[in-house]
Amino acid sequence: MHANLYALGAIALWASLASLGVALTHVPPFLLTGIALLIGSVPAWPFVLRDPAQWRIPVRTLALGVYGLFAYHFLLFIALRHAPPVETNLVCYLWPLLIVLLSPWLLPGVVLRAPHLLAALLGFAGAAIAITGGAIAGGQALSGTLAWGYLPALAAAFIWASYSLLTRRVAAFPTTAIGLFALVSGLLSLLCHALLEPAAALQPRDWALLALLGLGPLGGAFFMWDRALKLGDARHIGILSYITPLASTALLLLVSGRPLNASIALATLMIISAAVIGMRAR
């Protein structure tokens, strides 16, 4: 139960990512990610100042953390630059499905049963309806065209799914180490900004939104997600994660003043059904 609550907490924070991102579209993406990740590392600082040993982790574990936090966002932003954003978002949200499907391969003793597979596919279908239906309701049309940017989007989905599972395969590390992952990933993002992006001047409102982004979807959510994975069943958590695109799309519609539509209602029913099927599977 505690694992599910931590997962739902992370999902609730990630639901605000798109809305905050829309408000910060004028900020270069690597600069945005770098500052937000550095801010996201701050909650771990008091614990590390009291006990520096909490950040003394094997290089292999740190590399895995940077692989998850930095590589995922790097590929996500590359994808968003070279493919339509709605379809890119949909491809990136393959990661909950991949968590379920990869669990038997990456976690010893985990077996994938038919109900898990059914729930994963039903959840992904609901997520697809939430994203595409929300886009159509917002006046956006799906391009229906192929773009090479879908490849980094698919790679990003694989990275987040495999990172989430592989944290169970490395030597046990305290959740406060997520702050170190975020700190190093943020510094790498700022290096990418310095090398690849033009300089940008930030206004006070931008800093306030970046603080919300860092303490929420690019900070606090990572700590909650780590606790959920340490305490719970990765298959169940992967299925619950389909709430993320649903909540994200619904929040975008509300923030933009557009009404909720039938596609969101259908997606809600499908995702809740997927969660119930997945949770009852043994």
Rank of each mutant, 00 (worst) to 15 (best):
A201Y: 09
A199R: 09
I178A: 12
L195S: 01
A201C: 10
R205C: 07
Q203S: 15
A182M: 15
L191V: 15
L196M: 10
L183T: 12
S189D: 09
A182G: 06
G179L: 08
L183A: 15
W207Q: 05
V184R: 03
R205W: 15
L195D: 06
Q203P: 02
W207Y: 11
A200D: 00
L180Q: 12
P204T: 10
E197W: 04
C192K: 05
L196V: 11
A208R: 09
A194T: 10
A199G: 01
L183P: 00
A177K: 00
A199E: 04
P198R: 06
L209S: 01
G186N: 11
A194L: 14
L210Y: 06
P174I: 04
P174L: 00
V184S: 07
A211D: 00
L180Y: 15
I178T: 15
G179R: 02
P174S: 10
W207G: 00
S185D: 11
A182R: 03
G179P: 03
C192M: 13
T175N: 04
C192D: 09
L191P: 09
L183S: 09
W207E: 02
A201M: 12
A182N: 15
E197S: 01
I178G: 08
L195H: 09
S185Q: 11
F181E: 04
P198E: 01
L195I: 01
P174Q: 02
D206R: 00
Q203C: 02
L202E: 00
L190H: 06
A177Q: 02
H193P: 01
I178L: 12
L188G: 05
T175F: 04
T176N: 09
I178W: 10
P204K: 14
I178S: 06
L195W: 10
A211G: 00
L187F: 15
L187I: 15
H193V: 04
G179K: 02
L209H: 08
P204Y: 09
C192S: 13
F181C: 06
L180C: 07
A211V: 02
G186M: 10
A211P: 00
A208T: 11
S185T: 12
D206I: 04
L183W: 08
A199Q: 06
C192Q: 12
A194E: 11
T175L: 02
A194H: 11
T175Y: 02
A200V: 10
L209V: 08
W207L: 12
C192R: 10
G179H: 03
L210P: 09
G186D: 13
G179D: 07
A211C: 00
L190A: 11
L188V: 14
A177T: 05
R205F: 13
L191R: 12
